[in-house]
Design a protein around this nucleic acid. Structure first.
Lengths: 347, 347
DNA sequence: AACATTGCGGCAAGCGATTGCCAAAATTTG
DNA sequence: CAAATTTTGGCAATCGCTTGCCGCAATGTT
């Protein structure tokens, strides 16, 4: 006896396709087909095989499967910062949809850095069947190259080279401006996000144009890192512009500004109005609750997954949508109010 | 000519260990060793190989590597709800540490459901080298079985069968109680979390005991789902108990309660004091800012990774820590205050 | 100088699936 | 009932890498 029977308490070997084949008295290829290509095999043998597989608690090795088939069953989701609540919503959306489709989600934080992003992308060519790239920091050329090498969908980063899910925040910026104008504001300052962010430029452009159209003044400050901690500097800078209203790149900055304004005794919205962007967790219960630009972010994540999956499926790839634009709207809460008298006279 | 040269714009085949071997004029085994077992090969040949690998932008196939070596290079992190900000901090911590160690993070949402958790665990035996199980809903037996089958570390769920990272919230509950007592509160109600949560029982027990010791009354309401939306019901129930102070299972519920209290015209902290738990994003800027139990959650994630990695490493596995307790402290903000007069007299 | 070590690299057998090709069996067709 | 098809299942080659084993060469030991 080399081993006492029953003492098999060691890291039990997992059953393989072969164990099933032996028990069923068929070849491994038949088992493989029965399990992943059901119509290729007789219904009765398939059932028998499935039964045995279930008894054995068989779980296919995605490794082996991936090696021979080329598919990995995993989709990577790249976000600039896992810390940012905005991406949480995206992650939640992708997670849901991916799980439903039987895919595994690989979560990668690119640290808002282009090189980390490129590096991850390169490594993932092997590991993932496709990529969802949120708020990419890549240049157009880099993005095109990446899209050429692997199936990819971008979120909030338009490109002709890959399907894209856009959140129409620029459109909502116009709403925000109108909202502020109707409250009597004549000048607005935009608190910009990271220079590498495609969105911040889009938003500023939208604001600039809309402001020009309605004869308002718009100035920009920044860039600021999208964190609440940037809010203090942003608030001080905004105050420096003398504007009575500010639109922030995102809610994180806006919430940070709220706190700074309080410290400095600046009342919101009496002295200054502020609108954020993204309607993140917390925007509704901060003090005062933040007027912000809301959109179905989680759905953006889900949509991105659908588009990617369509791209992966040779049958649907042709008919796949290349662009989805998520609607946005201005969620008016208490951080915006009538412009102070001084501002109105100046106008 | 079967193919026009240079027209290789198709999904380029990725270089393999073999391409490198050919160029370097060595066997694939040498390349393999040079790349993943450097001291096993001569420095000069190693350098040569590394150089060629770099030129080719070689990326090893984790699939193939995993298949032959048994290791996958991935660690799965299971959380009950990716939506919950508390887990965000954990995820951030694990993500950091895993990336630093060269591992890939697989994020899985178990939807607070035991069967989903078990199912994921089973599938992951093949896919991941180890598991980090946050706030597991498993029974002791299930957990023991899981730990037997694969390397695993739990967070906030003690068990003798696997290394554990505990956040000492019960300890902080005592602090919270003392804090409330010193403010004149005589009775406190605990708003419980999900029945399947191990933490909620631990916390209640700690409160019960501490309250008994200092002659306070403690009652429990619940269970409630850990979401802000549960706050309304929780707030109403808490009001029903007549207690002047409440300790909530977590900040999510506490923040939801804050909103409900405002709706009902109950002032915080004048009429009722409330303390949360976890110090999540938002606890500092809600209205009023929440007194809560804080701890280095992100570090808990990092520690869990370290413990798991130690377990994976045969050299360190013996010396590995089996238990880490993260310190906690009461972060006093504005949601707690002196007990209303009625309460003080009653005491 | 003869022998024992050690260092370095190659050979080849897997790891667990998938899949192209082929042949036997079952079914349809003329 | 034979020929033509279609089903069904097996064989065996891969996928890209790791690793045990072996042997040669270089170094170290008396």
């Amino acid at each position: 006896m080399t081993k006492s029977p029953g003492a098999a308490d060691a890291p039990e070997r997992m059953p393989t396709i072969r164990d099933i084949a032996d028990r069923a008295g068929v070849a491994t290829s038949t088992v493989s087909r029965a399990l992943s290509n059901p119509q290729r095999v007789n219904a009765r043998t398939r059932e028998r095989i499935e039964k045995i597989a279930a008894e054995l608690h068989y779980v296919p090795s995605s490794q082996a499967r991936g090696l021979s088939s080329g598919r990995t069953g995993a989709i990577a989701v790249l976000v600039p910062d896992v810390t940012n609540p905005f991406y949480f919503d995206i992650i939640r959306g992708t997670q849901n949809q991916l799980k439903a489709a039987g895919y595994t989600q690989l979560l990668v934080d690119t640290e808002e850095a282009t090189d980390v992003e490129l590096d991850a992308l390169r490594k993932l060519r092997r590991t993932a069947d496709g990529i969802i790239l949120a708020a990419s920091r890549l240049t157009d050329v880099q993005l095109a190259e990446a899209a050429r090498l692997q199936p990819l969908v971008t979120i909030n980063r338009a490109t002709a080279d890959a399907p894209t899910v856009l959140i129409d925040t620029p459109g909502a910026m116009v709403q925000a401006l109108e909202h502020l104008a109707s409250l009597g504001h004549r000048t607005v300052t935009y608190v910009g996000g990271p220079t590498s962010s495609w969105s911040t430029h889009r938003r500023w452009k939208a604001i600039e144009e809309a402001a020009a159209r309605r004869g308002m003044d718009a100035v920009r400050v920044g860039p600021y890192s999208p964190k609440t901690s940037s809010g203090a500097a942003a608030a001080d800078a905004a105050l420096g512009t003398g504007a009575s209203a500010v639109i922030a790149f995102n809610d994180l900055i806006a919430i940070g500004m709220l706190q700074r304004f309080r410290e400095r005794g600046v009342r919101v919205p009496e002295d200054v109005s502020i609108v954020g962007c993204d309607n993140i967790f917390g925007a509704d219960f901060c003090n005062p609750p933040l007027t912000t630009i809301a959109s179905p972010i989680e759905q953006a994540g889900r949509t991105a997954v659908s588009m990617l999956l369509a791209q992966l499926d040779p049958l649907r790839t042709a008919s796949a949508r290349r662009l989805a634009v998520m609607p946005t709207h201005l969620e008016v809460r208490s951080s915006t109010g009538a412009a102070p008298a001084a501002e109105r006279h100046a106008g």
